[in-house]
Design a protein around this nucleic acid. Structure first.
Lengths: 235, 235
DNA sequence: AAATAATGTTAGATTAGCCTAACATAATTA
DNA sequence: TAATTATGTTAGGCTAATCTAACATTATTT
């Protein structure tokens, strides 16, 4: 059995690896993600290494073992299934799900997650558009870019958000933006990097910072839009 | 904020008080209920006392303060709402709910519990027939006795179970007994204290021990069947 | 290649929650 | 009421997970 804390470490390692597309995570990076000091990370790594969840050598990066990946994916799966439940079944808003799901993800019962997944009709993505890992730790990743990378004049569809802070999510909600909305980049201000975008026929001005945290699918490259990323080669 | 452990202590104290009908709980009693040693109880009591959740003097019994009761009732409420959710919505069986609900009860989100309660259509009792405390810590208590106390020849209705161990619950399930089933006590064996009972037209033989753990309502005293027990006088 | 900055590690302290073993008080029984 | 049993308390120790402060290594820049 894993402790609450060990689960958080494994989930964080899995998530950071997935985001970067590389299996190597740094101590400081992980510390920041978990809101801890690097020294604390080292203490825990010693334990995770003993239990064969990570591989790491002195002064080099951390890599999850296959078992570590499986466990990390499992926690992420639980988290995203709970987020979906809260959003779909209990009328939670976008910015409310994360805090509660982070507590719920640690409840360990295979039956619980399986039944919830059925109840939700086997969702592939959580309310923020992030993929729900399958039981083998495979993550369905969309071939996406950020709104900031979309060329002026082009249209795209919002498929996910990057940030999960409340201030960001509330900002997006205030724009009236929801998943699968069409967005057109109308104009860019060179001077201050602001973007004018069109949503549902209305023009809004948004910051570069916001645009960098919205994932979109360009409307002319939908064919190759999804591919399964095997973050974990098990079975 | 309460820790996981503090919540367990307060719930246990609330539950023991409620079961006994007295506001006084002993160290050893509590230790047994929580599967801990009496010495550990004392450590925690010091903390709970400082935080004003319990009152206790050297070598005497423990009493919850009003605030302590409110908190204890809150945890019990969460526990029983989760049990109902698992049973009603996720097809958990009688003996599976407890373990998972004991983890879920510590997730702290008022909205979560309120929404779940709505989803379940404001249940008054959990799947074991135990009352769900309201938001003020009031417990609706049925005027009930155990099956062992029912006179031979009389009929009654099962309204709750006392024990929560799996071996007991499975035993009851094997008899085909569910909440609100009618039970008639057909015969008693003087020699070994076994009871013959009729359920759905079939006769079963059960032990005294089992009968002592089944709560029933006698079919002729239904009028005065429920009364609200104010375990906590707040507001 | 030396200086600086960034990153990783270690030692030693702290807190929560539990334990055992010894001891103190209260309750029960002979 | 004295002896016995049940119950409650204290001291001292352990582990998990965190911290700070000092130190070591690696990477980057000049």
């Amino acid at each position: 059995m894993l402790t609450f804390t060990e689960e958080n470490y494994l989930k964080a390692l899995f998530q950071l690896s997935a985001e970067k597309g590389i299996d190597q995570v740094g101590t400081t990076e992980l510390a920041q993600h978990l809101n801890l000091k690097p020294a604390s990370i080292n203490d825990m790594l010693k334990k995770l290494k003993e239990k064969n969840f990570v591989e790491t050598e002195r002064y080099s990066k951390i890599t999850l073992t296959d078992e570590g990946k499986r466990r990390g994916a499992e926690i992420m799966r639980r988290n995203r299934i709970w987020e979906t439940f809260l959003y779909d079944k209990l009328d939670f808003t976008w910015d409310e799900v994360q805090e509660v799901a982070e507590q719920l993800e640690h409840v360990s019962s295979k039956k619980l997650i399986d039944k919830l997944y059925d109840l939700l009709e086997s969702p592939e993505f959580d309310p923020h558009g992030n993929p729900i890992p399958d039981l083998n730790g495979n993550l369905k990743v969309q071939f996406r870019k950020t709104l900031a990378e979309v060329e002026t004049g082009q249209s795209c569809k919002m498929v996910a958000v990057k940030e999960s802070s409340n201030s960001f999510l509330q900002c997006v909600m205030n724009l009236g933006l929801v998943l699968n909305n069409k967005i057109t980049v109308v104009r860019r201000q060179e001077f201050d990097d602001l973007l004018d975008i069109e949503i549902n026929g209305r023009i809004h001005t948004v910051s570069q910072k916001l645009a960098q945290n919205i994932y979109v699918l360009c409307l002319n490259c939908q064919k190759e839009s999804t591919c399964i990323k095997h973050l974990c080669n098990l079975n």
